[in-house]
Computed example of a mutant assay.
Amino acid sequence: MAEVIAWVLVLAIAAYACAGGTDYGAGFWDLLAGDAERGKRARWLIDHAMAPVWEANNVWLIFVFIIMWTGFPTMFQAVFEAMWLPLALAAVGLVLRGAGFALRKPTRRLAQRRVYGAAFAISSLLTPFFLGAVLGGIAAGRVAVGTTASADAWANPTSVLTGLLAIASTAFLGAVFLCSDARRFDADDLVDYFRLRALSAFAAVVVLALIALPVTHDDARHVWEGLTGGPGLLLIVLAAFCGLATVLLLVRRSYGWTRYTSVASVALTVGAWGFAQRPYMLPTSLTVAEAAGATHTMRWLAIVTVIAIVLVGPALVLLYRLDTLGELEPLTDADTRAAGTPGDNL
């Protein structure tokens, strides 16, 4: 039962990396869109693309935490004791990001929109970095039961590279999704705009991954061995194939499958990390069996998880489907031309 719940946790992390990561990537490109005039059209597209789903995507993060503290309380305590600072910074980023995104659109004054937009964009950069740094510290074996909080737990080479890979991966996902959204809204100039950014982000992912190879070999040996053999290696190869397929589709300007191939590349990478850590929750000090809660707790957690999937899963699928089809909040002609609003120059 503990093994099954552990894999549910990995799947939830993969879902958040893909769903929430797409939103973080949109925020990253919002940060780099330029000044108010030059970045107006790109930000209009980002706002309309994110608006229907950005809150729903955080359901996966809540699901991850619930599984951790209910099913694996020993791991939860160890991680939050050793990593409280990056996790607190990620939480602050989540709050500021949500507030910035929610408040900047209805705000009329340009100066206030800039403040809210900056909070949204910068938090979209910091939050995935700190979450990635936490995962990197765990993979590197920097966290064990009783480990006290220190910078070494999350500021080590593996953590930093994992954080940077998280940023690059979310930027890749965000650009691919925005490219498809721009095409759906007939904003042809934005299609090429985000297409080039998707290709650039994938190049950054490849460079960071190559840099991470020798670092992981020396700093996270157990995970390295899991990623270079068995199911972990197979999933990494499949992830690379899906990433290259996405690039090929973008180069050929064939956007029908790019969402699926880009999501698959990230999800398969998370799955490979799950296989690489086996049989540990905290390499190499705490196994899945040792971290698991009481038997009856795990049994009830499994039942509740199945019920949640049955009740919430179809609703999320329908939400994503309607959003993909543009049924929730279609852009108007004024929106695609980035029309001004009263008070823009105040």
Rank of each mutant, 00 (worst) to 15 (best):
L32A: 05
M1G: 12
D47I: 09
R108Q: 01
R97S: 11
L286S: 09
T297F: 10
L248V: 03
L235K: 12
V206T: 02
V263W: 11
D218I: 06
L235Q: 13
L234V: 07
A88W: 04
L318T: 15
P330Y: 09
S150G: 12
A245Q: 01
A334D: 01
P231I: 02
M281G: 04
V288A: 10
F76W: 11
A42G: 03
A239P: 15
L233T: 07
V251F: 00
I167V: 13
G163T: 10
A51W: 02
G229A: 15
T297D: 10
T258M: 01
A175D: 05
L196N: 07
L286K: 03
L32N: 03
T341Y: 11
S285I: 03
T258S: 05
G293R: 03
A203Y: 13
I67T: 13
F76A: 10
F63N: 15
M75D: 02
R43D: 04
R113E: 15
L165T: 04
I13E: 02
T162M: 14
A182C: 02
A276E: 09
T228F: 08
M68S: 07
A187M: 12
F28I: 15
A51Y: 05
M1A: 14
R104P: 09
A220K: 14
D192E: 03
I67M: 09
A289L: 12
R183F: 07
L89K: 08
V270C: 14
T127M: 13
T170L: 04
A171E: 00
L213Y: 08
L322S: 12
A264P: 08
G232N: 09
M1N: 09
W273N: 09
E37H: 10
T287N: 06
L89F: 12
L328K: 11
R41W: 03
L316T: 15
V53C: 02
A334Y: 01
F80T: 13
S159E: 13
V306G: 15
M298K: 05
L301M: 13
Y193W: 08
V317Q: 14
R259I: 10
R41G: 07
L9E: 05
A149K: 08
E225T: 00
H222D: 00
V59N: 15
G132K: 06
V79P: 04
G230E: 06
S285R: 02
L126A: 14
K105F: 11
A203I: 14
L96T: 14
A149F: 10
Y255M: 01
A144Y: 05
A14M: 08
A111Y: 02
T147L: 05
G340Q: 02
A14R: 07
L126G: 11
G100F: 08
L131G: 11
D323L: 09
F76S: 12
L110A: 04
R337K: 06
A198C: 05
D30W: 10
V205G: 01
